[in-house]
Design a protein around this nucleic acid. Structure first.
Lengths: 168, 168
DNA sequence: GGACAATTGATCCAAATGGATGTAAACTGC
DNA sequence: GCAGTTTACATCCATTTGGATCAATTGTCC
């Protein structure tokens, strides 16, 4: 049993979530909860089905959207450490999902392009992920979904998101 | 140089973000970007200042909010693997921030309580984290902030968030 | 009360992570 | 064009992660 008798401090899960999402850190708690809980589901699913970590298929998604980009550019879209991106790209190249072209004007960098096989894999990955996104967003009306997206984009556009003043 | 001449496929970072956040996975991309970018900042900062991973101070926050809860309950608030919570609690106990009381009605579980030292530490942690939250949310008006919170809470309340139909 | 399942939390260990460093190429100032 | 700095990416290695398993306790059903 969770609480039972006189427990005034330990309500059930729903009540705890409500209180955490009304606390001082409510904005952080609420949005982090949604993303953490969703990642738990989505990342494990794709990891099992395709033996591929989230960084790899995220990178593949970016490369398919912007053929020719460099590994460095992926970091702008997915804020992860540099070596994480490096390894994800290496995995994609090793499995034949991505091809690296030396850039004519910079011998250090490599232009990344999806292969036909990579695009086919991406299709198979995106199908359940898109369905999961729909499931995740289903508590909101269409109009609320668009509001939510607009607010997230506004937060993402904030210059302090990636370069904090209050934290070094 | 990033693009320069005729590159129609590799716009700059801002344009790439805009396009990713207008793609099929726009909802997922936008909200994940905000949380990932923020975690990058906040988690590293607290990790450096207090040598403490995010799981530990999150757990401490939960324990302070709900004195007497069990390790298991923390998982409801912060969806992470069970052993992750177990280790975070062990760290808090080892450092004297949390005390474990055997529960009278269940000898397996332990009631977790913050110590005075733990509450003092939490205060020192929450100050910059709250400031960071304000910074993060600053692109939104007060009213938009409340809308955002309400939408996140609505998503968090969705029963499919933690138990997907489309993914096992 | 006894056998079987479920739950709580700790621990094992192979694999992933990320800060630091390395290597090579490109800018910068003189 | 030459030192010093910066940038792109790879790699090293100590630490962390998380799936699996374990031990202990509780619940269930007969």
């Amino acid at each position: 049993m969770n609480d039972g008798g006189g427990g005034q401090d330990c309500p059930d899960g729903r009540q705890m979530l409500d209180r955490i999402m009304a606390s001082d850190l409510r904005y952080l708690m609420a949005v982090s909860y949604v993303v953490l809980a969703n990642n738990q589901i989505t990342n494990r699913f794709i990891e099992r089905r395709h033996d591929m970590p989230v960084q790899a298929w995220s990178a593949l998604y970016a490369i398919a959207q912007f053929p020719g980009l460099r590994a460095r550019d992926i970091q702008v879209l997915f804020p992860r450490p540099q070596n994480t991106i490096s390894r994800a790209v290496a995995l994609l190249v090793r499995r034949g999902h991505v091809r690296e072209d030396p850039l004519p004007d910079d011998a250090r960098a490599k232009g990344l392009h999806p292969t036909a096989q990579g695009l086919a894999l991406l299709d198979r990955i995106l199908e359940p992920v898109a369905a999961r996104q729909a499931e995740l967003m289903s508590p909101l009306t269409r109009s609320e979904q668009e509001d939510f997206l607009a607010l997230c984009r506004k937060l993402a556009a904030g210059p302090l998101l990636t370069r904090s003043q209050v934290m070094g």
